[in-house]
Simulated assay, not measured.
Amino acid sequence: MTTHSCTEIATERLFLENDAAEMQRQVDAAMGKPGEDVLLSFASDTEAFYGRLGGARRLSQRAIESARGSESKETAAAWRMNAALREAEFDNVARSRQEIAPALAEGPTRDVSVLAALAFSRIGDINSAERMARDLAERFPLNTAINRYWLPAIYASIEIRRDNLAKALEDLRTTSLYELGSPLPQFEVGGSLYPVYIRGQIYLSLHQGKEAAAEFQKFLEHRGVALNSPLGALARLQLGRAYALQDKTVQSRAAYQDFFRLWKDADPDIPILIAAKAEYAKLK
């Protein structure tokens, strides 16, 4: 997706204004019209932003079916990869893996391949991630978004799995000029700040709480970029972890509570939520 319709832009604004009722009216009004799959996928990310993963899955499936109904298998595959990445970030590794192969089979486009490589790297399938990353680098050597944004994010995620954290940070160095933008493929209507999120995770692993907090704070400072990316909600949790590393218990508890407020209606069996509750219980 390279341009935003007026309806998409309006829906983004409504999300930032927390107008859930009007967002739902926009989605309902789009049903049966061209582009309904875009709003359905956007709505799925909004559900995921609030931890309502079951609802997110149902909306993603509707987006996929709508795209197929419009004879756009490539778009259907992109929405499926969006769902796979969401599952990966929520630590649903098996569910994420189940979504990747069918998406690649249905629409093995450049953009779907980028997102598949990222998903593989996020769930720890290093061999698949490296193989796809090499292929993308060879096929698209002049594509700035791929080589300066997505591939560094993929490589950094691979190095995290190898516990090579210094190399992971170095891999992300080239993203600094682009990470506050919305480079294609836009698997959500807005940008995702993926390199920022990954860099923050690296600093957490290095026990550098101050640096980690600075990265995750960017999600709060740039809501117009992150929009309803589920990473925006998870950044609150990661802020809590970053403050805990600095022994800033008051700030840490506040960040965890901010995350729990967003996820007050979340599905209780999401692995990352279960971990967050256990961590919060140990804060003194």
Rank of each mutant, 00 (worst) to 15 (best):
T3C: 08
T3S: 11
T3G: 10
T3Y: 08
N18V: 09
V27L: 10
A29Y: 04
G35P: 01
F42C: 05
G55P: 07
L59F: 03
Q61S: 13
A63L: 05
E65A: 13
R68L: 15
T75C: 10
A88L: 14
A103S: 06
A103G: 06
T109S: 15
R110C: 09
A117T: 08
D125W: 01
S128V: 09
A133S: 07
A137M: 12
P141G: 12
N143V: 11
T144F: 06
I146C: 03
L151C: 11
I154C: 03
I158K: 00
E159R: 12
E159H: 14
R161C: 12
D163Q: 12
L165Y: 13
E170H: 07
L172F: 03
T174Y: 00
P183L: 03
P183A: 08
F187A: 10
E188M: 05
S192E: 10
Y194A: 13
V196G: 02
V196P: 00
Y197A: 06
Y197H: 10
Q208V: 05
K210I: 07
A212W: 00
F216V: 01
F219P: 01
L227N: 11
N228T: 09
S229D: 10
R236L: 09
Q238T: 02
Y256R: 03
D267T: 00
I270N: 12
K277V: 13
A281N: 12
K284P: 14
